[in-house]
């Protein structure tokens, strides 16, 4: 039934069938350069320094418009994360006023268990302050974005476990701004040139290219602290965006490191167990014609 020849033939036919219309799909989504992330792959772990830098970018730049409502201060001290100490987190939380209807005056100082306070009280406030556009919440945004791979490359992703489409997209987006509408901009359906609506900015990677967010990062904008004996990290948009994308991935998937470590042990166990089961099964079936 399932001989090799049939299977090969099936694969070949499918490949032909699937490859045929691939050219068509290629033009709609711009190619996104994949970055090398420390948290990719089976042994991936977050780079603590990178997460701390990313947190700095988030705090100093992004968080003035973007909320992260599912993140608690305590998360920043949890294992597998940016690795802040409990004291640092406690001090950080105390810098924020948290709305609490039971407190005197309706607010109190933050504690580690509190959620990250949102910059705007309501969605409408957020829109009003941002020209009608709603800055999306950051909590799981890194998993809500992805990269579309053309056939047959997306098939490989199942075998490599590629799950970094979000950070790749975020990095590309933050580096994809143009001051003017570029030559490469797509023409409208009727052939007229691309026109940028009032208050929008041109971005290569944003769907539709007209994004409401002004370019948020400039070279040298944030100064990273350099610990003694460590090489200085470049103060560029490229570096900032990598760091903040990594931090956003951590926000979306804070348990990634322990999950992958457990997974490695589980896979090893299963391979060993499968080997033993195979031996047992063979031993039981020995001498039976089947």
């Amino acid at each position: 039934m399932f001989n090799t020849k049939t299977i090969l033939a099936t694969v070949a036919i499918l490949a032909g069938l699937a490859g045929m219309p691939a050219a068509q799909a290629a033009e709609e989504a711009p190619h996104i350069e994949k970055q090398s992330w420390s948290f990719a792959g089976i042994f991936g772990t977050y780079d603590q320094n990178q997460l701390q830098r990313g947190f700095q970018v988030f705090r100093e730049v992004c968080s003035s418009c973007h909320s992260a409502r599912l993140i608690s201060f305590r998360n920043l001290a949890e294992e597998g994360g940016p690795g802040f100490s409990e004291e640092q987190v406690k001090a950080l939380a105390a810098e924020y006023d948290i709305a609490d209807s039971t407190a005197d005056g309706g607010t109190r100082k933050g504690v580690a268990a509190d959620r990250w306070p949102s910059p705007f009280a309501t969605e409408q406030d957020a829109r009003d302050a941002n020209g009608g556009a709603l800055p999306p919440d950051f909590s799981v945004l890194a998993k809500a974005r992805g990269v579309h791979d053309a056939f047959p490359f997306w098939i490989f992703n199942y075998f490599t476990g590629y799950s970094e489409g979000g950070p790749d997209y975020i990095h590309a987006l933050l580096n994809g701004y143009h001051e003017e509408v570029p030559e490469s901009a797509p023409h409208n359906a009727d052939g007229t040139p691309f026109e940028l609506p009032e208050g929008k900015y041109y971005n290569d990677y944003f769907p539709g290219h007209a994004i409401g967010m002004a370019p948020p990062l400039q070279d040298g904008q944030i100064s990273y602290e350099v610990a003694e004996g460590e090489a200085a990290v470049p103060l560029t948009v490229d570096q900032y965006s990598k760091d903040v994308a990594a931090f956003m991935m951590w926000m979306a998937e804070p348990g990634l490191v322990s999950r992958k470590q457990t997974g490695f042990a589980v896979l090893l166990f299963l391979v060993l167990f499968a080997g033993l089961m195979y031996g047992t099964k063979r031993k039981i079936w020995a001498g039976i014609e089947h």
Binding site: I42, V140, A144, K260, F264, L267
Partner: peptide, 22 residues
């Protein structure tokens, strides 16, 4: 269980769609 575990631990979201995180 081997491919099952592979997806659970190394690519838990690859079979889903990013939009479902919105």
């Amino acid at each position: 269980m081997i491919p099952f575990a592979w997806f659970i631990f190394f690519a838990p979201d690859i079979l889903g769609h990013p939009d479902n995180y919105i």
